[in-house]
Amino acid sequence: MAAASDLFYRFGYHNVGTEDIAKAVGITPGALYRHVRSKEELLASALSDSFERATIVIDRQLPGGFAAVVGDLAETAAHRRELGVLWTRETRHLHAEYRTPMLERFFAFLGNLTAALREARGEL
Protein backbone atom coordinates (compact mmCIF):
# COMPACT_ATOMS: atom_id res chain seq x y z
CA MET A 1 0.00 0.00 0.00
CA ALA A 2 2.81 2.40 0.83
CA ALA A 3 4.44 1.92 -2.57
CA ALA A 4 1.13 2.34 -4.38
CA SER A 5 0.31 5.46 -2.34
CA ASP A 6 3.67 7.00 -3.13
CA LEU A 7 3.42 6.28 -6.85
CA PHE A 8 -0.18 7.54 -7.09
CA TYR A 9 0.88 10.68 -5.22
CA ARG A 10 3.92 11.39 -7.39
CA PHE A 11 2.61 10.42 -10.83
CA GLY A 12 -1.20 10.30 -10.58
CA TYR A 13 -3.48 7.29 -10.50
CA HIS A 14 -3.84 7.00 -14.29
CA ASN A 15 -0.11 7.24 -14.89
CA VAL A 16 0.73 4.31 -12.62
CA GLY A 17 0.29 0.70 -13.66
CA THR A 18 0.21 -2.40 -11.53
CA GLU A 19 3.55 -3.30 -13.12
CA ASP A 20 5.03 -0.12 -11.62
CA ILE A 21 3.67 -0.95 -8.18
CA ALA A 22 4.89 -4.54 -8.34
CA LYS A 23 8.33 -3.41 -9.49
CA ALA A 24 8.53 -0.89 -6.62
CA VAL A 25 8.16 -3.69 -4.07
CA GLY A 26 10.22 -6.25 -5.95
CA ILE A 27 7.51 -8.68 -7.03
CA THR A 28 5.82 -9.62 -10.30
CA PRO A 29 2.43 -8.22 -11.31
CA GLY A 30 1.03 -11.75 -10.95
CA ALA A 31 2.21 -11.89 -7.35
CA LEU A 32 0.60 -8.51 -6.71
CA TYR A 33 -2.74 -9.83 -7.96
CA ARG A 34 -2.58 -12.60 -5.39
CA HIS A 35 -2.92 -9.87 -2.74
CA VAL A 36 -5.28 -7.38 -4.40
CA ARG A 37 -7.86 -7.58 -7.16
CA SER A 38 -7.06 -4.29 -8.86
CA LYS A 39 -5.20 -1.01 -8.83
CA GLU A 40 -8.44 0.61 -7.68
CA GLU A 41 -8.51 -1.69 -4.66
CA LEU A 42 -4.97 -0.55 -3.79
CA LEU A 43 -6.06 3.09 -3.86
CA ALA A 44 -9.10 2.32 -1.71
CA SER A 45 -6.94 0.35 0.74
CA ALA A 46 -4.42 3.16 1.03
CA LEU A 47 -7.18 5.67 1.81
CA SER A 48 -8.87 3.27 4.21
CA ASP A 49 -5.59 2.75 6.02
CA SER A 50 -5.19 6.49 6.48
CA PHE A 51 -8.65 6.83 8.03
CA GLU A 52 -7.96 3.87 10.29
CA ARG A 53 -4.75 5.47 11.56
CA ALA A 54 -6.49 8.80 12.15
CA THR A 55 -9.42 7.15 13.93
CA ILE A 56 -7.05 5.31 16.26
CA VAL A 57 -5.42 8.62 17.20
CA ILE A 58 -8.77 10.23 17.99
CA ASP A 59 -10.16 7.23 19.88
CA ARG A 60 -7.22 6.70 22.22
CA GLN A 61 -6.73 8.81 25.28
CA LEU A 62 -3.47 10.68 24.95
CA PRO A 63 -1.77 12.43 27.83
CA GLY A 64 -2.26 16.10 27.03
CA GLY A 65 -5.82 15.65 25.81
CA PHE A 66 -7.10 17.20 22.63
CA ALA A 67 -3.94 19.21 21.99
CA ALA A 68 -1.97 15.96 21.94
CA VAL A 69 -4.51 14.40 19.53
CA VAL A 70 -4.15 17.36 17.16
CA GLY A 71 -0.38 17.14 17.46
CA ASP A 72 -0.42 13.43 16.70
CA LEU A 73 -2.69 13.96 13.68
CA ALA A 74 -0.42 16.76 12.43
CA GLU A 75 2.64 14.54 12.82
CA THR A 76 0.92 11.74 10.90
CA ALA A 77 -0.06 14.18 8.15
CA ALA A 78 3.49 15.49 7.93
CA HIS A 79 4.89 11.97 7.51
CA ARG A 80 2.15 10.85 5.12
CA ARG A 81 1.72 13.97 2.95
CA GLU A 82 0.43 11.91 0.07
CA LEU A 83 -2.82 11.07 1.84
CA GLY A 84 -4.37 14.50 1.42
CA VAL A 85 -3.47 14.55 -2.25
CA LEU A 86 -4.86 11.07 -2.78
CA TRP A 87 -8.08 12.05 -1.03
CA THR A 88 -8.62 15.27 -2.96
CA ARG A 89 -7.21 14.28 -6.36
CA GLU A 90 -7.57 10.53 -6.77
CA THR A 91 -10.82 9.44 -5.08
CA ARG A 92 -12.69 10.45 -8.22
CA HIS A 93 -11.22 7.31 -9.80
CA LEU A 94 -13.00 5.05 -7.33
CA HIS A 95 -16.27 3.42 -8.32
CA ALA A 96 -19.18 3.76 -5.90
CA GLU A 97 -18.45 0.38 -4.28
CA TYR A 98 -15.18 1.84 -2.98
CA ARG A 99 -16.04 5.56 -2.84
CA THR A 100 -19.22 5.24 -0.74
CA PRO A 101 -17.54 3.43 2.19
CA MET A 102 -14.63 5.89 1.91
CA LEU A 103 -16.98 8.86 2.26
CA GLU A 104 -18.69 7.17 5.21
CA ARG A 105 -15.32 6.67 6.91
CA PHE A 106 -14.32 10.26 6.21
CA PHE A 107 -17.50 11.67 7.73
CA ALA A 108 -17.24 9.27 10.70
CA PHE A 109 -13.66 10.49 11.27
CA LEU A 110 -14.78 14.10 10.97
CA GLY A 111 -17.64 13.45 13.41
CA ASN A 112 -15.26 11.89 15.94
CA LEU A 113 -12.83 14.78 15.61
CA THR A 114 -15.65 17.30 16.05
CA ALA A 115 -16.92 15.45 19.11
CA ALA A 116 -13.44 15.43 20.64
CA LEU A 117 -13.10 19.15 19.94
CA ARG A 118 -16.48 19.89 21.52
CA GLU A 119 -15.52 17.90 24.59
CA ALA A 120 -12.19 19.68 24.94
CA ARG A 121 -13.28 23.16 23.88
CA GLY A 122 -17.07 23.35 24.14
CA GLU A 123 -16.99 27.13 23.93
CA LEU A 124 -15.80 26.91 20.32
Rank of each mutant, 00 (worst) to 15 (best):
N15L: 01
P101R: 02
N112K: 14
A4H: 03
E119V: 09
V70E: 12
G122E: 02
R105Q: 14
T76H: 15
A2S: 06
L32W: 04
L86M: 12
T28H: 05
V70C: 02
T91N: 04
L113A: 12
N112F: 00
T18R: 03
G71I: 02
H14V: 08
E90P: 00
L113V: 09
A116D: 07
F51N: 10
R99G: 04
A108M: 06
R34L: 13
L103N: 10
Q61T: 14
A44T: 02
E82A: 06
G122Q: 04
F107N: 09
R37M: 06
E41L: 06
E90L: 01
A68T: 06
A31Y: 06
E119A: 07
A74T: 04
T100W: 03
T91C: 13
P29S: 03
G64Q: 12
M1K: 04
H95P: 03
L7G: 15
A4I: 04
L42R: 04
F106H: 13
A116Q: 10
M102C: 12
I56E: 13
G84T: 13
P29A: 00
E119F: 01
N15G: 05
A77Y: 00
R81C: 01
P101Q: 08
R118W: 00
E75Q: 09
R10E: 12
R53H: 11
G71L: 03
E41Y: 03
R10L: 08
L73Q: 00
I58Y: 11
A46C: 04
E52K: 12
E123G: 03
A22T: 03
A22M: 03
H35P: 00
G71D: 14
A120E: 06
R60T: 15
E123M: 08
T18H: 01
Y9T: 11
D6R: 15
I21E: 00
A116E: 08
R53V: 15
A77F: 00
L86N: 01
E97Y: 08
H93T: 05
H79S: 12
I27T: 13
A108E: 11
L62M: 11
A3N: 12
V16P: 14
P101C: 03
I56M: 09
G26P: 09
G64F: 12
T88C: 01
T28N: 02
A3W: 05
L7H: 05
L62V: 11
A116W: 03
E75K: 10
Y13R: 06
S50V: 12
L42N: 11
N15Y: 02
T28L: 03
A115H: 14
P101Y: 07
A44F: 13
W87N: 03
L110F: 07
R53C: 09
M1R: 07
A2R: 12
F66N: 01
L83R: 08
L86W: 05
H79I: 05
L42F: 10
R118K: 08
E19W: 07
L103C: 09
A31T: 14
A4C: 01
V85Y: 13
L62K: 10
R34N: 12
T88S: 02
A74D: 11
L110V: 05
V70N: 00
